[in-house]
């Protein structure tokens, strides 16, 4: 064969052949990988991109499942098997071997087949080591496909109710102990002096609760003043029926974390109530059977504090 001189094809003929072969190659790729074809057409705007409607069954029930269980491998960065499940359009396009969802036919849908396989099967999805779908989740996907794999349908009869996961924050007991430490000595002393009057709000808290109502007339201004070292930690105080007077106002004002205060059946007057306006955490005050006027409660109400009793009761 000659290694130089004129070639067998003109440049135009050659590039015509290249264009033809490239188009043929892309056609074969599109035939072998329909998802690639649809993705290309949708990207070029030659094919409508299917969308799921807000509030649809897909959006509320299916997408969260795909998100939690499948996107680790089937999102835009990994797309194992060229399958993406990060959008309705991508899920409906399918993967390398074609669509994985056949609307109306769960058993004919590769996606359903894979999630239904026993975990011992190599083809099972999610693969071993990943959190498997629950029986209810598999049922939800099955019913969705059986109902036509719609992006519009809002409810599907018989679909198991969604499981709402409630997360209770773990308590940090070490942190609570650390917060309680500075109060411990004073609290111990006061608890010995006033049994049952002052306790922690809960086992996970360093905040305090005061209930002097059971001591009644035996609990007066001097006793309340004794709580002053712990005042900033007191969040609830029930002083109903005690003999406290307006002289208790400075101690009450020192309770800067106070949220609920009960002063029913006491001798406090408007003077004390006016002083309470500065307590930013206060949510409710009870002044049932006191001489407190409605005018004195008005500023508290303006700050969003619920009031009970007073001049208008």
């Amino acid at each position: 064969m000659s290694d130089f001189g004129p070639g067998r094809l003109s440049a135009a003929a050659y590039f015509g052949c290249v264009a033809l072969l490239t188009a043929l190659g892309l056609g074969v790729a599109a035939w072998a990988h329909p998802a690639f074809l649809h993705s290309s057409l949708q990207t070029m705007g030659l094919e409508a991109v299917p969308h799921a409607a807000p509030g649809s069954f897909y959006v509320t029930r299916i997408a969260p499942l795909f998100d939690a269980r499948c996107l680790g491998c089937h999102d835009d960065t990994r797309a194992k098997g060229q399958l993406r499940l990060d959008s309705f359009a991508a899920a409906m396009r399918g993967g390398r071997d074609g669509p994985v969802i056949e609307p109306g036919n769960p058993k004919g849908s590769e996606l359903f087949r894979r999630i239904s396989l026993p975990s011992s099967d190599d083809r099972a999805m999610p693969p071993s080591g990943k959190t498997p779908l629950t029986a209810d989740e598999v049922t939800v996907i099955k019913l969705w496909i059986a109902s036509g794999a719609s992006g519009e349908l809002r409810t599907i009869k018989g679909a198991p109710r969604p499981v709402v996961e409630v997360k209770i924050p773990e308590s940090d007991l070490a942190a609570v102990q650390k917060q309680r430490a500075p109060l411990a000595a004073a609290l111990k002393q006061l608890q010995a002096r006033y049994p049952g009057v002052i306790i922690y709000e809960s086992r996970n808290s360093a905040d305090l609760e005061v209930d002097a109502s059971l001591r009644g007339a035996a609990f007066g201004d001097g006793d309340l003043a004794a709580l002053l070292p712990l005042a900033a930690r007191i969040v609830r105080a029930d002083l109903s029926g005690t003999t406290i007077t307006d002289a208790a106002a400075p101690t009450l004002v020192a309770m800067t974390s106070l949220t609920r205060l009960r002063l029913a059946h006491t001798k406090i007057t408007d003077k004390t109530l006016v002083a309470l306006v500065g307590l930013k955490s206060l949510k409710s005050v009870s002044v049932v059977e006191t001489k407190v006027s409605d005018d004195a409660l008005a500023p508290l109400r303006q700050h969003g504090v619920a009031t009970y009793g007073g001049g208008n009761e």
Partner: peptide, 24 residues
């Protein structure tokens, strides 16, 4: 392919044998 079919330079053959025609 362009070199082979249009310019008649067999680059593939050269990359196999290591040799080119002296005119090239």
């Amino acid at each position: 392919g362009f070199y082979l079919l249009v310019k008649n330079h067999n680059l593939v053959g050269a990359m196999v044998t290591g040799k080119k025609h002296p005119h090239l």
